[in-house]
Nucleic acid binder design. Structure first.
Length: 305
DNA sequence: CTAGGGTTAG
């Protein structure tokens, strides 16, 4: 892409054209950077940029391979965009906090926490949900709980973020009791708790929950639900349950389309000691051999061979 | 018809 040329051309055009260029190459990091440095060095379009445009840039940096750039841009704007000062909105803070979550940057979350309060987003659901997520992924569970308690309005994502954080850091009983208090649990909530049981080596609880909610009560699972339950089945070496979940997923149309499920199913069959089922039902792929090797090497206690 | 932006589960 001859981006430098397009930049030169666009220097004579209006801000809108520059932005359309920016948005057209959203996926290209180098393009974003070039446009960013262009905006800063020329200064021509710099003050024409509104907060939404900067947010686009913040978003891309926060999702990129070096999310610190979102902070650098934010700092730069706070220092240099002074007359009139740029008024960051809830979107700006959401992106910055997302970068903190990605980097597990608790102190950054703390600083942005203060700034969101100053900017008047004290009761903003999205901003505080993503802030809660920063504390949750960092393991700052007391702060997370405090943010949660202080939120006057919560949605299911807010609940799920805290439940996920608690489950991630081993506070499964707390996660479970919060989950039981939750007004309207979603499939994400169920899957999180099931995955928590699986990872905490409580495969029977995982299966019990899966069976009551998704099979008896007919709640619709997603692919991720199945991916959360398979390791529990492997752990128990329960071939019948593996077959049950297999046909269940088949009926729901979740197996055929998803390579992750097929691999996981194959892995589980192998670890339950049923290599024939694994290879017969799914067909032998390159990855299958790997799974079967794993079964032989790692889970031999459950093998029937 | 004026483009562009937000949170969670493996």
């Amino acid at each position: 892409m001859k981006l430098s040329l397009t930049i030169k051309l666009s220097a004579h055009l209006q801000q809108r054209n520059l932005l359309s260029l920016l948005l057209k190459h959203q996926t290209r990091r180098s393009a974003m950077q070039q446009l960013h440095s262009h905006l800063i060095t020329t200064g021509a379009h710099y003050h024409c940029m509104d907060v939404t445009s900067w947010n686009t840039l913040l978003r891309h940096y926060s999702l990129g391979i070096f999310p610190q750039e979102a902070f650098l841009l934010f700092r730069h704007l706070r220092l240099h965009h002074v007359s009139p000062p740029l008024s960051f909105n809830s979107f700006s803070f959401s992106f910055l906090l997302k970068a903190c979550a990605y980097l597990q940057h608790r102190k950054g979350g703390l600083q942005l926490h203060a700034l969101t309060l100053k900017a008047g987003f004290e009761f903003h659901v999205y901003v505080h949900t993503v802030l809660l997520n920063v504390y949750a992924v960092c393991g700052a569970l007391l702060e997370a709980k405090q943010v949660f308690d202080e939120m006057p309005v919560r949605n299911s994502v807010t609940w799920n973020v805290l439940i996920t954080g608690l489950a991630k850091w081993g506070e499964l009983h707390l996660a479970r009791s919060l989950f039981d208090e939750m007004p309207m649990p979603t499939d994400v909530s169920w899957t999180t708790i099931i995955g928590g049981y699986t990872r905490m080596n409580q495969p029977k609880q995982a299966l019990a929950l899966f069976c009551t909610k998704f099979i008896d009560e007919g709640i619709k699972p997603t692919e991720i639900t199945l991916l959360a339950i398979f390791p529990a089945i492997s752990n128990l070496g329960a071939l019948e349950i593996c077959q049950l979940v297999h046909t269940y997923g088949e009926k729901r149309g979740l197996n055929a389309s998803d390579i992750r499920i097929r691999n996981s199913l194959l892995d589980t069959y192998a670890k339950c000691g049923c290599i024939e089922s694994a290879s017969r039902k799914l067909g032998l792929m390159d990855i299958s051999n790997l799974c079967i090797c794993n079964a032989w090497n790692g889970e031999r206690s459950h093998s029937k061979f």
